[in-house]
Amino acid sequence: MSAPQNRINNPSRRNFIAATAVGAASLGAVALAPGLHLIEVSQASAPSAGASSKVRWGMLIDTTKCASGCDECVQACNTENGINETVQDARQGSQWIRKIDLKDPQSGRQHSLPMMCQHCEKPPCVDVCPTGASMKRADGIVLVDRHICIGCRYCMMACPYKARSFVHQPLTEQNPQVPRGMGCVESCTFCVQRVDRGLKPACVEACPEGAMTFGDLNDPNSDIARRLANEASTQVRADLKLGLGVRYQGI
């Protein structure tokens, strides 16, 4: 028993063990630090809470300001969401937002407007989705869960606004914040990746005429809620009573 005690009481050996321990701890700390740092970063960037049902995101589009031939909103959407694939047949390409030109055959009055997912309160796409991949967040944003979409396209048959696209071909160079994939259905997300950071959807920011207003319909002090309270607006296919998050003026 005395020999080991002697060995451990040996000052030089004790110093060596201590130095080794400190060195190992330091190495360990160096090895763990990046991971700890990443955890901190991810915690910092993650929303502190999920979507709140107190908020109802909505959009108001003034078609009297929307110019025919202008597609700044469409371009901004494509850039923000990484919709950059080339397709031979345009009908097989994704169109999260598209411009529609309208003409009243009797009066000849014309106007133009952007059409996208109307983020219905009672979305037919959510009703018909067999797996629940089509879903509505608590704040009213209608999304597709890419992990459980099986690509049956029933939601596309059900959408009265033709707002959904099916990815027909392999994709490359995607925006990491906006995962997309061949064989799944997708549509306007109100740029949820921006909204969750307190930003407006890309189309709203890009509109040169300021024809698009985005905000919380439930907040009586928001710009959109005040305007909807005081100005006339329309829901497209209001007869379907789907409770749309997107309202139009001038149609």
Partner: peptide, 12 residues
């Protein structure tokens, strides 16, 4: 989508 109106777009 717009009953009674003539419509045109990039998406048929």
């Amino acid at each position: 989508i717009f009953p009674g109106m003539e419509v045109s777009s990039s998406f048929m």
